[in-house]
């Protein structure tokens, strides 16, 4: 029983990372109908931005709450800027082209970021400094929950709730929902489509950066190709929850994380990547709109 509980903790901590990345995919898809394949690489850039900020601020020598928040905010800001630039330079000029063109551009941006990362940061893995001193919050009955894991889950949940409030309660959020529902009609109502799309990219990229910093807390190895696998997994999580649906992305991420950890713990690590794709195939077969995705009627 204690083993199962421990695995559940491991799974939820791991799943909240997927959830944060998946939200970025889902938001961009919801507004633009574009699968932003560069999202996993924005996550990688976030990790490196945090790495250099932590080194520059010398956080690891004396971890402070303000320092850690500073690193997190800096990485989020850097990625928000990157997301903004990517959207303006790569996707905006293609707004009127067929959707396939934008998709291929996304793959191009992804490859560009991966290789530029290797050029600038080097292909060697780097080790993220310990910016939070480890403590055990719960240690008993064979179950251990460290403060780092708790922070991962807590910060993820906090950000997801904030995002949800933003989308449901603010005017910009309302505009985002409108654009997602019907772009032409939204623009006729006086909503600036370009502005809303930029906001979407900025938010999604900032969340990817937050995910990267949280991963680096508990798994402190970062390298330029680190975004590929989590990117794909988070994409599957987004589809699982219903692409375009934000609570769906959170649910999908959690399910993916827990499923992976359980498969490794009780079956074998070799099935770990297989489970993600098995879930993807099953969901596409039985509920293509995803767990929480609504029915999207084809417009004729």
């Amino acid at each position: 029983m204690s083993e199962f509980l421990q695995q559940l903790i491991n799974g939820i901590a791991w799943g909240s990372i997927y959830a944060l990345i998946a939200i970025g995919y889902t938001m961009v898809y919801g507004v633009l109908r574009l699968i932003n394949f560069a999202h996993g690489d924005v996550y990688m850039v976030g990790a490196f931005a945090g790495f250099y900020a932590a080194r520059w601020l010398k956080i690891s020598e004396e971890p402070t709450f303000i320092g850690v928040t500073g690193v997190l905010l800096f990485a989020m800001f850097a990625c928000a800027l990157l997301g903004f630039i990517i959207e303006k330079s790569a996707y905006k000029p293609l707004r009127k082209s067929p959707r396939l063109t934008a998709l291929i551009t996304a793959i191009g941006i992804s490859l560009f970021l991966e290789n530029a990362g290797q050029l600038i940061f080097g292909a060697d893995p780097k080790f993220f400094p310990q910016i939070i001193t480890k403590k055990n919050l719960i240690a008993g009955g064979g179950v251990i929950l460290t403060n780092q894991q708790a922070i991962v889950v807590g910060v993820s949940l906090f950000m997801m709730i904030m995002l949800q409030l933003f989308i449901q309660k603010t005017r910009t959020g309302k505009a985002m929902r409108a654009v997602s529902f019907n772009r032409e009609a939204a623009s006729l109502m006086g909503i600036s489509i370009d502005k809303i799309i930029s906001v979407t990219f900025v938010l999604g990229s900032a969340l990817a950066a937050a995910a990267a910093i949280l991963v680096a807390l508990t798994n402190p190895k970062i390298e330029p190709l680190m975004g590929i696998m989590p990117g794909i997994k988070a994409f599957v999580a987004a589809v699982l929850g219903g692409i375009g649906n934000i609570p769906g992305a959170m649910l999908g991420g959690m399910i993916m994380g827990v499923a992976e950890v359980m498969v490794i713990g009780y079956l074998s690590s070799t099935y770990r990547d297989a489970i993600a794709f098995a879930i993807l195939i099953l969901i596409l077969l039985f509920k293509p709109s995803g767990l929480l995705g609504g029915f999207a009627g084809e417009k004729v």
Binding site: Q6, Q7, N10, K221, E260, S269, T270
Partner: peptide, 18 residues
């Protein structure tokens, strides 16, 4: 238990070993 080169998360395997 096993992992693959490049992995960063080993808690599932370690929990099973423990």
């Amino acid at each position: 238990e096993s992992y693959s080169e490049g992995d960063i998360e080993f808690r599932a395997q370690l929990t099973a070993l423990k």
